[in-house]
Design a binder for these strands. Structure first.
Lengths: 115, 115
DNA sequence: AGTGTACTTAACCTTTAAGTTAATTAAATG
DNA sequence: CATTTAATTAACTTAAAGGTTAAGTACACT
């Protein structure tokens, strides 16, 4: 996995435990122990998941006595939203027109449509 | 990685090569060889990426003589769009209100906010 | 039937991911 | 100052991801 931001974000979101953690954090900042509570895995495992989320910029962590409260960070989610919006035309009307148009281009000239 | 659909989709999208393939397919259906052309990796490597995309439902493959044309499938992308939309309130106005409200709930009662 | 083209499968290697238990750090509290 | 609570780090295991080369399959063409 390359470490560009989009890749890191998608990779972080590919795990259901991590998505559940984000969903919990959507309800507000909380501690690691409380985040771990719903899961059957060990605390170190959750700690690792949090590190993945942090490296992807999806959460930020504070310090409050012996607790390390986590909170959701929106920026990478905005990136995802922006990325996927680019594909919206595919499930909306403009798809067919665009597709038909570019099919022509493709077959008309060479395969110069790299990247 | 669990094989629920969202996880498979996010995992598939976590690779920049695969995202580039999808971007190319947004320009229209094309062959494996043409898809592979922009990349420095071997054809089998691309073939594997296509299999990942196919298993995630992000592409479908046809048969035309010795070619196996690939085309983009929108459904899993719609799932992603739907998922991320749930978090939109975080980077829009309602965040602060929601956050404040749920902070109160949390501290008021126990940690019954599992999952 | 034999050859070229398009692609996949097989076998393998190396790196990373996700989990474990045990040990460690850090702060609060008796 | 010893103990409890909160969380991380270390060391390790297993499995999966992503790449390679070499071999195999499928169809088209002469």
């Amino acid at each position: 996995m390359t470490t560009d931001r989009l890749s890191a974000t998608f990779a972080a979101l590919a795990d259901p435990t991590r998505r559940a953690i984000l969903a919990r954090l959507a309800l507000g900042e909380t501690s690691v122990t409380e985040l771990a509570e719903p899961f059957q895995m060990s605390l170190p495992a959750v700690s690792k998941h949090l590190k993945v989320l942090e490296r992807a910029g999806l959460i930020a962590r504070g310090r409050e006595a012996q607790w390390r409260p986590c909170r959701l960070e929106a920026a990478p989610l905005q990136d995802i939203a922006g990325w996927v919006e680019e594909y919206r035309r595919f499930w909306e009307g403009s798809f067919d027109r665009l597709d038909a148009y570019l099919q022509t281009i493709q077959k008309g000239e060479g395969n110069d449509t790299s990247n």
